[in-house]
Write a protein that binds this DNA or RNA. Structure first.
Lengths: 334, 334
DNA sequence: CAGGAGAGCGCAATCGATTGCAGCACAAAG
DNA sequence: CTTTGTGCTGCAATCGATTGCGCTCTCCTG
């Protein structure tokens, strides 16, 4: 039945009216007699007709879809499968669905500075959400000059934040995590993770802040990419190299989990010998052994905020960057 | 500079030619003099011009994007953030990007049977990949009659598989996991997880198969949704209720991790008292304590296969369902 | 110098839906 | 019976890019 009925014109033919009338009838917009409207709608439904969105979008000058991009330029490039990002993406999906927008998802390894303008200029999306600044601050900055409907997840205040940025106060987060350990008497707190993206750099700053405030010398900085290699012995060896370490601030929960495992392989117990604090509070964090003490970022709020800001920007408003609340969640690992 | 140049016509005006010529020049297709071509391209680039994809797609009758849908109809509805799915989505993203297609991602909670035909008929995508059959086998079946470019991840052989289905041999996977435990002498192997989607039902069948082959009575079946609640005490209580359990087959890695934690809360050690086998081999599986023994599904292959099949179907070919290899990965937990 | 070939480009239709403006029909009023 | 008014629909342009067909101009050949 639902064979060859693909366009408004097809329906129009069957109903004995013009495409214009069908369009109006289906939209319920203009003054179409109730009788005609009902008949058209009925025909449309019985044939399983659906309006072609591409044509509709062309005419209306919009796409009803939002581009979500994850640049993977930085050295510590987390895969998109990092639980933190996937949870955030999940929430974004929900929020966009509620506003009847689709999500065009892509991860890009920036080879040149065009990855962003390509998407913006393609006419495929009405707005863009960039997840992670990566090392692309200049590109984001430049883009923001000419392209308004864009919101970035990351460390607000990185660069001169000419773009609208949503994120937590990572410096405070790093400080909280570190203070938690220092205040329990630990004196050789190591930082495990990199600092090659603004968010992580800020966490590390907070780590240093806490040490300074407590008048304790910072511990070693062990560099581990967010997407660290399962089998790599680097972390283990670094830990062996620093037997004085008596606590650890990890740059993310995934790193924390890896660290806990590496510690156990070195014969050190968590939290007795070495307490570990993670970052993100990913969904698994509460379920592993030991349950992770970590810095929780409220992703539902984060996603809603980004979407709200984006839609306001799409309407032409100017919006400032926003900080999302954050808290230390006390569990077993520290 | 890049101000008001948005259409082919704008470029044409500047170059003193017609839009037709600009189109051909940029496409490099037809017979355009090298001189004209070079000039047009130069003008286009200097103005940062990009072809409007919506218009292009309308004209060409395609969208260059693929819909990836995750139905969440089943009771055990895993969130999209289940690491298994996110990893699969990540690989799909890579594969689609290689073929210059975008990914339109959405999760739907099916309220009626139209969630799929809505997407298919919207004209927003050229093809659809459905991740998980959920409880929507009938919908998939019906859809496959009229809509060809669709591939489903799940248990091939569920229903009558009128649709093209890619997945592992879940029954065999369940059998392997169970045999591993039985062959080490365990006699009260419990299954933790649900059976409300075809994949899981097959894993459970495999679990039963192994018992039958070993002439051992199956252990208890503890029902836990894939997205089980962090704080819920159900699992813990079920374990207390069955002190005879001396091994566990979990329906997924995430469940396995939760189970390991619950076991420890009951004072039982893994793997000494109760070995646990997971399913999926998610990226974290190797990194937790104890490292998870699990059934590995090769997701890179899976994603490539699905994409390959989908594109063949988009070209009009018929394709049969495909089974992806699977293996038991032996680590510490069992 | 005329005729023919062929390269290069323009014209206009097309993809499918939306919408301002105009026109028709029917009803009520004079 | 004619006029005015109002309510429905249709006409045709539009969104921006693509492409078959055909025209023009150049250059070569006889």
């Amino acid at each position: 039945m639902a064979g060859q009925v693909r366009t408004l014109a097809d329906i129009a033919l069957i109903a004995g009216v013009t495409p214009a009338t069908v369009s109006r009838a289906l939209a319920g917009h203009a003054k179409i007699s109730e009788k005609t409207r009902r008949r058209v709608v009925e025909i449309a439904e019985s044939h399983g007709f659906q309006v072609n969105q591409t044509a509709r979008n062309l005419r209306l000058g919009r796409t009803l879809s939002i581009g979500v991009v994850v640049p993977l330029g930085h050295e510590s490039a987390q895969r998109v499968s990092d639980p933190f990002y996937t949870a955030l993406i999940g929430h974004l999906m929900d929020g966009l669905a509620r506003r009847d927008h689709a999500m065009l998802l892509s991860a890009v390894t920036p080879h040149d500075s065009r990855w962003l303008s390509n998407l913006a200029g393609s006419g495929r999306v009405d707005g863009i959400i960039v997840l992670c600044q990566s090392d692309q601050d200049p590109v984001l900055h430049t883009m923001a000059q000419s392209y308004k409907p864009m919101v970035v997840w990351g460390e607000a205040g990185a660069g001169d934040s000419s773009y609208c940025c949503v994120g937590t106060d990572n410096r405070r987060g790093g400080r909280l995590a570190t203070q938690h350990l220092l205040s329990s008497g630990r004196r050789h707190v190591a930082y495990v993770g990199m600092t090659d993206i603004p968010e992580l750099a800020a966490r590390y700053s907070g780590y240093l802040d806490a040490h300074q405030k407590a008048r304790v010398a910072p511990g070693p900085h062990i560099s581990v990419p967010l997407a660290f290699d399962p089998g790599s012995p680097e972390l283990r060896e670094a830990l062996r190299l620093h037997p004085e370490i008596d606590a650890i601030v990890a740059a993310s929960d995934v790193i924390a989990m890896g660290t806990i495992k590496a510690l156990s392989q070195c014969g050190r117990r968590v939290p007795e010998d070495v307490p570990v604090v993670g970052y993100d509070d990913v969904s698994l964090a509460a379920h592993i052994l030991p349950a992770l003490t970590t810095i929780r970022q409220d992703l539902a709020t984060a996603a809603d905020t980004m979407i709200d800001l984006l839609f306001r920007r799409m309407r032409g408003e100017e919006t400032a960057s926003v900080r999302i609340p954050l808290e230390l969640v006390h569990r077993q690992s520290a």
